[in-house]
Amino acid sequence: MTQIDYYLAPQSPWVYLAGTRPAEIAARHGARLVYKPLDAAQLFPRTGGKVRAERHPSRNEYSQQDRARQARKLGLKLDQAPLFGAANPAPAAYAIIAAQAAGGGDIAALVAGFGRALWAEGRDISDDEVIRATLQTAGFDPAVADRGLLMAAETYAANLEDAVARGVFGVPFFVVGDQKFWGQDRLDDLDLFLAGKL
């Protein structure tokens, strides 16, 4: 079975805009999608990038316009300055890792739920109640993140090292064998590649 490694950060607006499409593409091609949440704030400087606060204003202005266009195209609400935009993303990432290990729910819905909570609903994805509610809505035991905390923290750090070693430099990022696809705007290319058309 083909495996798609999906490197993501739950606070990324681009991961939010990707939504459940990665899972839909994987299902269409009978591929296994493995979610690999990581610390994007550490990934960027290690791979030649900069966090948003350190980028030139022209880059940030363009990115803001592009996010708004993509959200409209996808029919998604997007608050460009979310109330909890600076919240620590690690607890949500840990929940994704623990839920994936435990099974029994819908990981795609969980990832999309964290994105929606932050970018469309003004909620804090580092808050225990938000995490538990998002887990439950996606069909997971709300306590799964508590039970898997240590394993999730270790995996979160390992995912960063794995990403750097494999040439990942942003999120969302998809790796299939030696083929790499960066950004939610390359999901069509991933789909075509899996279909043998690219």
Rank of each mutant, 00 (worst) to 15 (best):
K36R: 15
R55L: 12
H29C: 08
E61N: 12
Q42T: 02
Y35K: 03
A31H: 06
R72K: 15
V51I: 11
S63I: 13
P13L: 06
R69V: 12
A31L: 02
A41Y: 04
R21Y: 10
Q64W: 10
A71K: 06
Q80W: 02
L38C: 06
L33Y: 00
K77G: 10
E24Q: 12
R59H: 14
F44R: 05
I25M: 02
A40D: 00
P13E: 05
L74S: 07
R46L: 11
Q65L: 15
A53C: 02
P37H: 05
R72A: 15
L74V: 00
A71C: 07
E54I: 01
K50W: 01
L74E: 01
R69M: 11
L38A: 04
R59Q: 15
K73G: 06
Y16G: 10
A68V: 14
V34W: 03
L74D: 01
E54Q: 13
S63N: 14
R69A: 13
E24A: 12
P13A: 13
L38G: 02
E54H: 01
L33N: 06
L17N: 00
A26E: 01
K77W: 04
A71G: 11
L17M: 09
E54F: 07
R52W: 05
Y35W: 13
R21H: 10
H56A: 14
P57W: 01
T20D: 09
G48W: 03
P45E: 10
R69P: 10
Q64T: 15
W14G: 00
P22L: 03
Q65Y: 12
F44V: 03
G19Q: 11
I25H: 00
R28F: 04
F44P: 03
T20F: 03
V15W: 00
D66R: 02
L33Q: 09
R32E: 14
G30Q: 10
R72D: 11
A68H: 13
A40R: 01
A41C: 03
E24P: 00
A71N: 08
A68N: 12
P37S: 08
R32N: 15
Y16S: 08
L78V: 09
Q65W: 14
R28I: 00
S63C: 13
R21P: 07
D79L: 03
E24F: 05
G30S: 11
S63T: 12
A68I: 14
Q70R: 15
A26G: 06
Y16W: 12
N60Q: 14
G49F: 07
D39M: 12
L33R: 08
R21A: 13
L76S: 07
Y16V: 10
D39Q: 06
W14M: 09
A68R: 15
G48K: 05
